[in-house]
């Protein structure tokens, strides 16, 4: 019991240390960035200010003090939920982000779940036909498809389904006047999700295949068969359960990869999510916004990485045993 508390505290400390370092990097980078920070607070008004007004504004905002005092102030504000103002949207950053966050979570979440399931099934299928024709064809196809950049795949799908056939919408989250319509929403999600799934699930099916093959080549499979079990049952009761923990942790560690993909796809489909937001804020030099998006994404990634590690350490007794063996 006590060790569990110690473990949790340790993990929490690592988590906060990670976010702390990340926030420093992001903050310093945003201060190095060219451009007058006043602009990001006052927008066009900043240009009309007189020199004394500017100085007063600087003092009020604390821009005259050193970087680390600015950082401490920024962290203090951030802790109260105040991340500053977005120059482009002329609104609180937190407000701008909270409006888009749900959209990204939906697109990313659906794609992630689909990739997770499909990769497992495909990997299983390939392992079942190890080195035979279906497996070889699928592996080659997989290498090919994973070489197609997401943006290009998006373009081709838009060209085929939206422009030429006109059956699916080529961008946005809703048709005008349909906001809140679930079915309309779903139609808009089809193409982005398809791109994300197609360009990622091959990439993950391959490790699944290899992990499964490593299992099916182990002697315990022979032992199970020698008991009188069928190959299918061995796969289902021994091999698949054995790879699930490592698979989950592998997928958790892969969150940044899929997140990057989501951001690109959002930008191509002008889907109102964080990715499009990040792209726009980078274009218009809206550092306050970009900083928070980076921080938010980084936090999500650190969290998923740690989940992956924790799963690896806790669930899989063989791995923790190996660790113990190393220590000896």
């Amino acid at each position: 019991m006590k060790s569990a508390v110690v473990y949790a505290v340790k993990k929490l400390l690592i988590f906060f240390a990670g976010i702390f370092v990340l926030s420093i990097i992001v903050f310093v980078m945003s201060r190095i960035a060219p451009g007058d920070p006043l602009v990001s607070y006052y927008g066009d008004r900043a240009e009309k200010m007189s020199a004394s007004e500017k100085a007063a504004a600087r003092e009020r905002l604390g821009l005259d003090s050193s970087v680390y005092i600015q950082y401490i102030r920024w962290v203090g504000n951030a802790a109260r939920g105040n991340f500053g103002i977005s120059y482009k949207y002329r609104q609180d950053v937190s407000e701008v982000i909270s409006r888009r966050l749900g959209n990204t979570l939906m697109l990313g979440g659906i794609s992630f779940a689909l990739v997770f399931i499909l990769a497992l099934l495909l990997g299983w299928f390939c392992a079942r036909f190890e080195d035979r024709l279906p497996d070889r064809i699928l592996c080659k196809t997989g290498t090919f498809v994973s070489c197609i950049p997401e943006f290009w795949l998006s373009l081709v799908l838009i060209f085929v389904f939206a422009v030429t056939l006109g059956v699916l919408p080529g961008g946005g989250a809703y048709d005008p006047g349909h906001s809140g319509d679930a079915l309309n929403r779903l139609r808009h999600l089809v193409l982005p999700v398809a791109v994300l799934v197609m360009s990622h699930f091959w990439y993950y099916a391959y490790p699944v295949r290899n992990m499964l093959l490593e299992q099916t080549h182990a002697d315990y499979v022979l032992t199970a068969k020698a008991k009188g079990m069928s190959s299918g049952a061995v796969m289902l009761k021994h091999c698949i359960p054995n790879i699930i923990p490592s698979y989950i942790s592998f997928m958790a560690v892969s969150v940044p990869h899929i997140l990057s993909g989501t951001y690109i796809v959002e930008a191509v489909f002008s889907y109102p999510g964080l990715g499009t937001l990040a792209y726009e804020s980078a274009r218009y030099g809206d550092y306050n916004l970009l900083m928070v998006i980076c921080l938010l994404t980084g936090t999500a990634v650190i969290l998923s990485n740690m989940t992956g590690q924790a799963i690896m350490e806790k669930i899989n007794p063989a791995i923790s045993a190996q660790k113990r063996g190393e220590n000896l």
């Binding site: 182990a218 002697d219 315990y220 032992t223 199970a224 009188g228 054995n242 923990p245 007794p317 063989a318």
Partner: peptide
Amino acid sequence: RLLSMTFQDSLSALNPA
């Protein structure tokens, strides 16, 4: 039932999980 077998390396012959 009729035939059974034990394998050489007992560590890999048992499912670790």
